[in-house]
């Protein structure tokens, strides 16, 4: 088995200690940091993301896999060239105004970081204008809005309106998600993308960033 495959498999198992040892060995053996990152660490995380989408693995398994991946990333980070270290894109994420639930939002953030995106976390109870302001100030391509409550999901429409009002609607894509949110709702409020789960949200965000 190649060392990259071993790294990938240990990321999937959440075996942080083994991932650290294998990444150190790979570096010592002269494997390029870029390969370690993409074909070992992120490859393992991508498999976990796919399994999460199909309900084959559960949230804690995803979290410890992310922990293992990040432990490996920390080792190779100083070795990556600027070009390799560059994020695939930048997004901002938050739970909409009036809603304090952050479990789903944090999970999406983690999956997005696992995909190599830079994520600006705005926290919970985020006003529509604050989403737009953060996107403009940080140069984010995507605004991701989360809501758990049926009573707060309507704020997402105000985020779309705020982006129009600020004159940046064409520059940013707006993604929505959360327990009560559906594709029909996304269409009704004029957002660009609905994601049913954290892994799909991360895939969609990468796609939206690459479309830039």
């Amino acid at each position: 088995m190649s060392i990259l495959l071993e790294i990938s498999e240990n990321v999937q198992k959440g075996a942080m200690k083994a991932v650290k040892e294998l990444v150190n060995k790979a570096v010592a053996d002269g494997v390029s940091p870029n390969e370690i990152l993409n074909d070992g660490l992120i490859a393992g995380m991508n498999i976990i993301g796919e399994k999460f989408k199909t309900n084959e693995v559960y949230v804690p398994e995803v979290l410890v896999a992310a922990r293992a991946m990040n432990a490996g990333v920390q080792i190779i980070k100083p070795l990556l060239t600027d070009e390799n270290a560059q994020a695939k894109g930048k997004v901002c994420i938050g739970t909409v105004q009036g809603d304090m639930h952050d479990i789903g939002k944090n999970l999406v953030k983690m999956m997005m970081e696992g995909k190599g995106l830079e994520v600006v976390d705005l926290g919970t109870d985020v006003a529509p204008e604050a989403f737009v302001q953060a996107a403009v100030e940080n140069g984010c391509r995507v605004i991701c809005c989360s809501a758990l409550l049926t009573t707060t999901m309507d704020v997402m429409e105000k985020v779309v309106e705020a982006a129009k009002k600020a004159g940046v609607r064409e520059q940013v894509k707006i993604m929505v998600g959360g327990a009560p949110v559906t594709e029909e709702f996304r269409l009704a409020i004029g957002a660009d993308c609905y994601a049913a789960d954290a892994a799909s949200a991360a895939d969609a965000a990468v796609m939206l960033c690459e479309c830039e």
Binding site: G14, V59, P60, L63, V64, R67, H101, D102, I103, N106
Partner: peptide, 15 residues
């Protein structure tokens, strides 16, 4: 289910 702030720490403890 732990809240968003504690979810990672709780998951780590399970392992």
């Amino acid at each position: 289910i732990p809240n968003g702030e504690n979810m990672f720490a709780f998951s780590e403890r399970m392992y």
